[in-house]
Simulated assay, not measured.
Amino acid sequence: MEELYKVMDDLLDVEFQMKSGIDLLKELEEFYMLEKENEESEARKVAVLMKGYLQSMKSNLREIIRYIDDTTLEKSNNEKKDRQESASTISEEVQDFVNLTIVEHMGKAYSEWK
Rank of each mutant, 00 (worst) to 15 (best):
V46N: 02
V48M: 05
E39M: 12
K45L: 12
R62F: 06
R44F: 03
K58Q: 15
I64S: 01
L49W: 09
L49T: 10
Q55R: 04
L49F: 05
T72L: 07
Y53N: 06
L61G: 00
Y53C: 13
N38M: 13
L49A: 15
R62I: 06
L61E: 02
Y32L: 05
Q55T: 11
E42Y: 06
Y32G: 07
A47S: 05
K58N: 14
V48N: 02
F31E: 05
L34R: 14
R44Q: 05
R66T: 15
M33R: 13
S56M: 15
L61W: 00
M57Y: 06
Y53V: 12
S59T: 09
T72K: 00
E63I: 11
E40A: 13
A43Y: 11
R66M: 12
N60T: 12
L28Y: 03
K26F: 03
M57N: 07
K51G: 02
E63D: 15
E42N: 08
M57E: 08
K51M: 09
L34G: 10
G52C: 05
E40L: 08
E30A: 15
M57W: 02
R66C: 07
K51A: 09
E27A: 14
S59K: 10
L61I: 06
D69S: 15
I64T: 03
K51S: 06
N60H: 11
K26P: 00
T72S: 02
A47D: 00
M57C: 12
A47I: 03
E30M: 08
M57S: 11
E35C: 04
N38D: 13
E29R: 10
E39R: 14
E74V: 10
I68K: 00
V48C: 04
S41A: 07
E35I: 02
L34W: 04
I64H: 01
L49G: 09
N60P: 04
Y67S: 07
F31H: 13
N60C: 10
R62P: 05
D69Y: 09
S59D: 13
R62K: 15
K58G: 10
K26W: 00
L73Y: 14
V48H: 07
L34P: 02
K58L: 12
A47W: 01
L49N: 12
K36P: 08
I65Q: 03
G52L: 04
E40W: 10
I64A: 03
R66D: 13
R44D: 00
R66P: 02
I65F: 02
Y53F: 14
E39H: 13
D70F: 06
M50C: 10
Y67C: 11
I68E: 00
E30G: 07
T71Y: 07
L61C: 04
E39K: 15
Y32Q: 06
E30L: 06
E35R: 12
S59H: 10
Q55D: 11
S56Q: 12
L34K: 14
L28S: 08
M50H: 09
